[in-house]
Design a binder for these strands. Structure first.
Lengths: 137, 137
DNA sequence: CTATTTTTGCAATACTGTTGCAAGTATTTG
DNA sequence: CAAATACTTGCAACAGTATTGCAAAAATAG
């Protein structure tokens, strides 16, 4: 409960109902959340615009990070390993369960380096693995 | 030119203007294409719906594959290494240039295997690397 | 060339995301 | 603690993106 306040303060964000609620959702949820999930789970207590802006703010502050998908949706997840200043978000692997459709951050699995062809300079890498998760096994 | 017909026949698809044109676009383009690119480059000769349906059909047949991104757009690219039946699409690395914004399939760079925590079974892996490409170096 | 199957385009609809601005809420400071 | 300031929210309007049903048109099979 206090965790939420700490995070907001630490990032010099005003403490508002919306931000508290949305942060709590992320903390409570195991996996990643899409914008639509959040709207549903807050029972439309907040304006769509507010949710968009809150997510954007959280991404900028490095509180959450975005996960790439192939289905035209963007997923968001908490940065657990207290990443600083919005850097280093993408160095863990994301797992999407094809059974329960949950997206899980494998915080302990780092994205391996790959050898790129001559002339390509890597800056950031993202990796998404699809398969069957722990709960569905 | 004939390549296009071959591909369509091989997948038992009717040969139509739209499909031919869109396939030609993919063959001509080095990188990946978004739905919007295709609409622009066909000068709106085809209905938006037709483009959507064509892309969907091509994905189902395994002619093209989707590339995950974090900005709510889906990119499509040709499967070069004649993947069969829609399998094995995601085993090469995709590169997005942060300078020119092109997305390039690195067909020769395969996605490395990662060790997942106990209980997770991988089926498919996708990897996207962001950085500076050959042309922008 | 005709019959059948497949694909297209239109219309309607729904979802997703963004911006400006006024009103409201949170924080700062004296 | 109250007033001043700064920040956040909600509304309205808008733009872009994606989906579905159905009738017309085109492609393929016989």
């Amino acid at each position: 409960m206090n965790e939420v306040l700490q995070i907001l303060k630490k990032n010099s964000l005003s403490v508002t109902e919306g931000r508290k609620k949305i942060l709590e959702l992320f903390i409570a949820s195991e996996g990643a959340l899409a914008h639509a999930d959040i709207e549903k789970q807050t029972s439309n207590n907040f304006d769509r615009v507010t949710v968009y802006r809150t997510l954007q703010t959280f991404v900028e502050k490095g509180i959450i990070h975005q996960i790439p998908t192939t289905d035209n949706s963007v997923l968001y997840a908490l940065c657990r390993h207290n990443c600083e200043q919005g850097h280093h978000h993408d160095n863990h692997v994301h797992f999407i369960c094809s059974n329960c459709d949950k997206t899980i951050c494998l915080d302990d699995v780092t994205v391996p380096q790959v050898k790129l062809p001559e002339g390509f300079t890597p800056l950031q890498s993202a990796m998404v693995v699809t398969g069957i998760c722990l709960d569905c096994a």
